[in-house]
Design a protein around this nucleic acid. Structure first.
Lengths: 218, 218
DNA sequence: TCCAAATCGGAACCTCGACTCCGTTTACGA
DNA sequence: TCGTAAACGGAGTCGAGGTTCCGATTTGGA
């Protein structure tokens, strides 16, 4: 684990003409191209078949040999981790941007809706949100968690999100709307609506709803 | 698949002295005992380690040879299926019983709460609710689905459950509170509360909540 | 153009876990 | 007590998929 990161920065390089910001030492042009291509194909394959997709499949669809995949990513986990990290950073940035948005409640719900839409059909990525304490991914995850918690706290201060839930509760509860491949737009929206209504419920709204079914509960 | 069922009814039996209702042909006493024991241990092992638990592990913990496990259950899937079927029938009965309960809303929520409590730490069983179109399990599943849908419809007629959700929505949304191993009593309750509030939300309650964050959505 | 280092490709290797086979042991009716 | 069919145990088979290795190929500077 974390080996992938090493691979991206290793090799003393012939002339160390790094230049910009992209992670490429004195790598040969074809190697850089291949790495990127493998990453893209792997992303697609994992999204469709989940983490259990065989490496051979990825190599074949990327038009390279298995060896090439392994030279760029020491283990399957590293490859998956690189992709996961990418997703995580993407969503973390999104979350951070939403912190600028004025409407605190809408910000949280927008983020959840986006995640639901994007994670749709990205098998296992959501499940991987838990676990994965490895290097790069860990860092990206921390960034996301920090931003998300800020969003949640802010929405709670604004009284647009019930005060008795934690950021983790929100993520966990949303998971059910994330995965689940074959769910169309309307189904997803319907479920998000239920979830949001539950998350929005304020003391008043709750009491109102409760009184309607008082004798209930247990 | 469905092979397990066959195994339970196979072998012409020496004297066919079935008698009561238990599925045992003219089986030898030790065989009956072993089958039951394997089933119990397997249940425990699968609950802890999920479907990926190796058969060897089950055999070892049951104190029998691998061959014994396979004689009773032709495939791993059949073994898992037998257990799943058992769970499914159990919960189906529970659901059916709740149909007698006067309070329609409480009935649904009680069932969900029970499922959340019981499925706690039973890895993969919930996930297996989807899929699994094989024989015996299929039948048990249908029974559960029928009862559950009746419960949902009834609660909606009683206006204790929002009218715009399907039975599947309810199950899917609940899944997030089901799995997730290390969640203590209070965490589970908290999440159920959010979920129930969302499911309970009536047109009025929803509108009320919405107006509070109108400019939101997107 | 030429050459060495960097890459590549993919056969071969290994591990793991489901499932099979068969010699040995056990239950139980005669 | 005996004999035999039923059960048992677990070594061995088989396939899948991750990872390694190394000869062939390609890139890029001299």
């Amino acid at each position: 684990m974390s080996g992938m990161a090493k691979a991206a920065a290793a090799s003393p390089a012939r002339s160390a003409k790094s230049g910009d910001g992209a992670p490429r030492g004195g790598r040969r042009a074809d190697a850089v191209r291949n790495r990127q291509h493998v990453l893209e194909v792997a992303q697609k394959v994992f999204a469709e078949a989940g983490l259990s997709a065989p490496i051979d499949e990825i190599a074949k669809r990327a038009g390279v040999g298995i060896g090439t995949v392994y030279r760029h990513f020491p283990t399957k986990e590293a490859l998956f981790g690189a992709i996961l990290q990418h997703h995580m950073e993407h969503i973390a940035s999104h979350a951070e941007a939403l912190l600028q948005k004025a409407d605190a409640g809408a910000a949280v719900f927008d983020l959840l809706r986006t995640m639901a839409r994007e994670s749709h059909q990205k098998k296992d990525f959501i499940h991987a949100l838990g676990g994965y304490p490895s290097g790069e991914v860990k860092t990206a995850k921390k960034r996301f968690v920090a931003a998300f918690e800020a969003l949640v706290k802010r929405a709670q201060r604004a009284r647009e999100l019930r005060p008795d839930v934690t950021a983790e509760d929100v993520i966990m509860l949303s998971k059910s709307v994330f995965g689940s491949a074959e769910q169309d737009e309307s189904t997803r929206e319907r479920r998000l609506r239920v979830l949001f209504d539950g998350l929005r419920a304020t003391a008043g709204a709750i009491k109102t709803a409760r009184s309607r079914t008082k004798k209930a509960s247990g």
